[in-house]
Computed example of a mutant assay.
Amino acid sequence: MTTTAVAVGKRSGRSLITEQEFDMLAAFCADEYGLERCVANQVVDQALALTYVMGTTRSGSVMAPSQLVDPGWHTLILHTDWYADWCQRHFGYFLHHQPNSKLRSRGLMTSVTGRIRSAGFEVDDRLWGTSSECNAPTCCGDGPCC
Protein backbone atom coordinates (compact mmCIF):
# COMPACT_ATOMS: atom_id res chain seq x y z
CA MET A 1 0.00 0.00 0.00
CA THR A 2 1.36 3.39 -1.01
CA THR A 3 0.68 6.45 1.10
CA THR A 4 0.74 9.84 -0.55
CA ALA A 5 1.37 12.92 1.56
CA VAL A 6 -0.94 15.79 0.80
CA ALA A 7 0.46 19.25 1.34
CA VAL A 8 -1.79 21.36 3.48
CA GLY A 9 -1.95 24.94 2.31
CA LYS A 10 -1.52 27.81 4.68
CA ARG A 11 -4.60 29.80 5.50
CA SER A 12 -4.94 33.54 5.53
CA GLY A 13 -6.30 35.82 8.21
CA ARG A 14 -8.72 37.00 5.59
CA SER A 15 -10.30 33.54 5.48
CA LEU A 16 -11.59 34.03 9.03
CA ILE A 17 -14.24 36.56 7.99
CA THR A 18 -16.63 37.18 5.12
CA GLU A 19 -15.59 39.13 2.05
CA GLN A 20 -17.98 41.93 3.05
CA GLU A 21 -16.41 42.16 6.51
CA PHE A 22 -12.92 42.12 5.05
CA ASP A 23 -13.80 44.84 2.56
CA MET A 24 -15.27 47.03 5.33
CA LEU A 25 -12.20 46.62 7.56
CA ALA A 26 -9.59 47.01 4.81
CA ALA A 27 -11.30 50.11 3.41
CA PHE A 28 -11.40 51.66 6.88
CA CYS A 29 -7.74 50.79 7.50
CA ALA A 30 -6.67 52.32 4.20
CA ASP A 31 -8.65 55.51 4.81
CA GLU A 32 -7.90 55.92 8.52
CA TYR A 33 -4.15 55.24 8.29
CA GLY A 34 -3.46 56.62 4.81
CA LEU A 35 -2.43 53.27 3.35
CA GLU A 36 -2.77 52.11 -0.22
CA ARG A 37 -5.58 49.59 -0.38
CA CYS A 38 -3.28 46.71 -1.35
CA VAL A 39 -1.16 47.43 1.74
CA ALA A 40 -4.23 47.76 3.97
CA ASN A 41 -5.41 44.37 2.69
CA GLN A 42 -2.18 42.75 3.86
CA VAL A 43 -2.15 44.64 7.15
CA VAL A 44 -5.72 43.58 8.02
CA ASP A 45 -5.00 40.01 6.91
CA GLN A 46 -2.02 39.79 9.26
CA ALA A 47 -3.91 41.49 12.10
CA LEU A 48 -6.70 38.92 11.80
CA ALA A 49 -4.25 36.02 11.94
CA LEU A 50 -2.46 37.58 14.92
CA THR A 51 -5.71 38.25 16.78
CA TYR A 52 -6.98 34.74 16.11
CA VAL A 53 -3.79 33.18 17.48
CA MET A 54 -3.79 35.48 20.52
CA GLY A 55 -7.42 34.64 21.23
CA THR A 56 -7.32 30.89 20.67
CA THR A 57 -4.12 30.45 22.69
CA ARG A 58 -4.91 33.08 25.34
CA SER A 59 -1.51 34.64 24.68
CA GLY A 60 -2.53 38.27 24.17
CA SER A 61 -0.31 39.41 27.02
CA VAL A 62 2.86 38.02 25.43
CA MET A 63 2.19 38.80 21.77
CA ALA A 64 2.15 42.15 19.99
CA PRO A 65 1.70 43.39 16.45
CA SER A 66 4.60 44.98 14.62
CA GLN A 67 4.44 48.71 14.02
CA LEU A 68 3.16 48.01 10.51
CA VAL A 69 0.48 45.49 11.58
CA ASP A 70 -0.70 47.66 14.50
CA PRO A 71 -3.10 49.73 12.32
CA GLY A 72 -4.84 46.49 11.36
CA TRP A 73 -5.19 45.47 15.01
CA HIS A 74 -6.62 48.89 15.81
CA THR A 75 -8.97 48.65 12.84
CA LEU A 76 -10.44 45.46 14.30
CA ILE A 77 -10.91 46.80 17.80
CA LEU A 78 -12.31 50.15 16.63
CA HIS A 79 -15.25 48.24 15.13
CA THR A 80 -16.34 47.34 18.66
CA ASP A 81 -19.69 45.67 18.00
CA TRP A 82 -18.28 43.57 15.18
CA TYR A 83 -15.07 42.80 17.11
CA ALA A 84 -16.88 41.77 20.31
CA ASP A 85 -19.13 39.42 18.35
CA TRP A 86 -16.20 37.98 16.37
CA CYS A 87 -14.22 37.33 19.56
CA GLN A 88 -17.17 35.63 21.21
CA ARG A 89 -17.76 33.36 18.22
CA HIS A 90 -14.09 32.38 17.84
CA PHE A 91 -12.77 32.39 21.41
CA GLY A 92 -15.75 32.47 23.73
CA TYR A 93 -14.49 35.66 25.36
CA PHE A 94 -13.59 39.26 24.52
CA LEU A 95 -9.87 39.63 23.74
CA HIS A 96 -8.87 42.95 25.26
CA HIS A 97 -6.25 45.25 23.82
CA GLN A 98 -3.16 45.18 26.03
CA PRO A 99 -0.74 47.74 24.60
CA ASN A 100 2.86 46.64 24.92
CA SER A 101 4.48 48.33 21.94
CA LYS A 102 7.52 49.26 24.00
CA LEU A 103 8.34 45.55 24.13
CA ARG A 104 8.63 45.20 20.36
CA SER A 105 11.91 43.73 19.25
CA ARG A 106 13.07 41.57 16.39
CA GLY A 107 13.08 38.62 18.81
CA LEU A 108 9.47 39.22 19.84
CA MET A 109 8.34 39.69 16.25
CA THR A 110 10.11 36.45 15.28
CA SER A 111 8.34 34.67 18.15
CA VAL A 112 4.97 36.12 17.16
CA THR A 113 5.37 35.17 13.51
CA GLY A 114 6.47 31.70 14.56
CA ARG A 115 3.27 31.27 16.57
CA ILE A 116 1.17 32.53 13.66
CA ARG A 117 2.91 30.12 11.26
CA SER A 118 2.49 27.25 13.72
CA ALA A 119 -1.25 27.92 13.71
CA GLY A 120 -1.23 27.39 9.95
CA PHE A 121 -1.38 30.98 8.74
CA GLU A 122 0.61 32.67 5.99
CA VAL A 123 2.97 35.34 7.32
CA ASP A 124 4.06 38.39 5.35
CA ASP A 125 7.52 38.91 6.84
CA ARG A 126 7.77 42.35 5.22
CA LEU A 127 5.17 43.61 7.71
CA TRP A 128 6.85 42.10 10.76
CA GLY A 129 10.48 43.19 10.39
CA THR A 130 11.59 39.56 10.36
CA SER A 131 12.71 39.20 6.78
CA SER A 132 16.22 37.89 6.27
CA GLU A 133 16.91 41.02 4.25
CA CYS A 134 16.43 43.73 6.84
CA ASN A 135 16.41 46.74 4.56
CA ALA A 136 13.76 49.40 4.13
CA PRO A 137 10.89 48.88 3.55
CA THR A 138 11.32 45.30 4.80
CA CYS A 139 12.36 46.35 8.28
CA CYS A 140 9.45 47.58 10.34
CA GLY A 141 11.53 49.90 12.49
CA ASP A 142 10.42 48.30 15.75
CA GLY A 143 13.19 47.94 18.28
CA PRO A 144 16.60 46.68 17.19
CA CYS A 145 15.45 44.81 14.09
CA CYS A 146 18.02 46.40 11.79
Rank of each mutant, 00 (worst) to 15 (best):
M1N: 12
G13M: 04
L16I: 06
E19C: 04
E19V: 12
Q20R: 14
Q20L: 15
D23Y: 13
D23A: 14
D23W: 10
F28V: 11
C29L: 00
A30Q: 04
E32W: 05
A40Q: 05
D45C: 06
L50R: 08
T51P: 15
V53W: 05
V53D: 04
M54H: 07
M54L: 04
T57I: 05
T57W: 02
R58Y: 07
S59A: 11
G60K: 01
G60W: 00
V62R: 09
V62Q: 12
Q67V: 15
L68I: 13
D70W: 03
D70M: 10
G72Y: 02
L78W: 14
Y83D: 13
W86N: 06
C87V: 05
R89K: 13
R89E: 13
F91M: 04
Y93W: 05
F94T: 08
L95M: 04
L95F: 03
P99M: 08
L103E: 11
L103H: 08
R104S: 03
R106V: 02
G107F: 10
T110K: 12
T113N: 06
T113I: 09
G114M: 05
G114D: 03
R117W: 07
S118M: 12
S118W: 03
G120V: 02
F121C: 07
V123C: 09
D125H: 14
D125S: 15
D125W: 05
T130R: 04
C134Y: 06
P137D: 07
P137E: 07
T138Y: 15
C139R: 13
C140N: 01
C140F: 00
C140T: 06
G141V: 00
P144S: 07
C145F: 00
